[in-house]
């Protein structure tokens, strides 16, 4: 008998037990999702900048130049990445843009040692916990939001949801999960040493959210 057959056999031979019906649970809703998101994301140590769909590259350029960011990794083939690449071509004073344009195996050293920041889009965000939703794709790989010391995420105000429960249900996530879905709430942190918060232990030390306001 295989381990599988033995384990399943034992479980199936056990006395049957009724599974309870799920009692009602009403996740919270927020009259002002943006206010809640802002409050929670900032509590998570994220930095939020209100921007417009037209001018965010300029705004980002200023932000990054002030921080002395020299190399920004972007994802070609994504709306956000392409916008930045175009902006740079048009003379916006962005840091050197490094494209995440090949497999990680050929890009490891760059990713680990040679970029200061990475820029991604988002699929939306969760007001309750100040959380960004990212579904990495072939164009926008998983490590772009993880390896560079600074993660910049572009979020549209329209894409705010009350809770994870609401977005999973409303968008029918169960019908088609990506290979990797991520919820990100602030920069990487630890409190393993005397419960003292320290940021950037493995992932980004900072998270900047560029919030594209509705109708602006």
């Amino acid at each position: 008998m295989s381990a599988r057959a033995n384990i399943l056999g034992r479980l199936k031979a056990a006395p049957a037990r009724p599974g309870p019906d799920l009692p009602p649970w009403t996740p919270p809703t927020y009259a002002d999702k943006l206010a809640r998101f802002r409050q929670m994301a900032e509590a998570n140590h994220a930095e939020i900048h209100d921007v417009t769909a037209e001018t965010w590259p300029e705004r980002l350029a200023t932000l990054l130049n002030n921080r002395g960011v020299g190399r920004l990794m972007v994802a070609p083939g994504t709306p956000r990445g392409d916008t930045l690449l175009r902006a740079a071509a048009q003379g916006v004073a962005l840091p050197t843009l490094v494209p995440y344009d090949r497999a990680v195996e050929d890009l490891k050293d760059t990713l680990v040692h040679q970029v200061d920041a990475g820029l991604t889009g988002t699929r939306g965000a969760i007001a309750e916990t100040g959380t960004l939703i990212l579904w990495p794709t072939a164009e926008e790989p998983r490590l772009l939001s993880l390896l560079p010391p600074l993660h910049i995420a572009v979020l549209e105000e329209d894409a705010l949801h009350d809770t994870l429960a609401a977005v999973v249900r409303d968008q029918g996530w169960a019908a088609g999960m990506p290979t990797n879905a991520l919820l990100i709430s602030g920069p990487s942190k630890t409190s393993d040493i005397e419960q003292t918060l320290a940021y950037g232990v493995h992932g980004p030390k900072e998270l900047i959210i560029l919030l594209i306001k509705k109708g602006e």
Binding site: T129, T179, A181, L182, L183, S185, S188, K189
Partner: peptide
């Protein structure tokens, strides 16, 4: 914490 920094949902290997 209301949520951890990362929730990582893995449904498959690199496509």
């Amino acid at each position: 914490q209301p949520i951890t920094t990362y929730v990582n949902m893995i449904s498959g290997p690199r496509k």
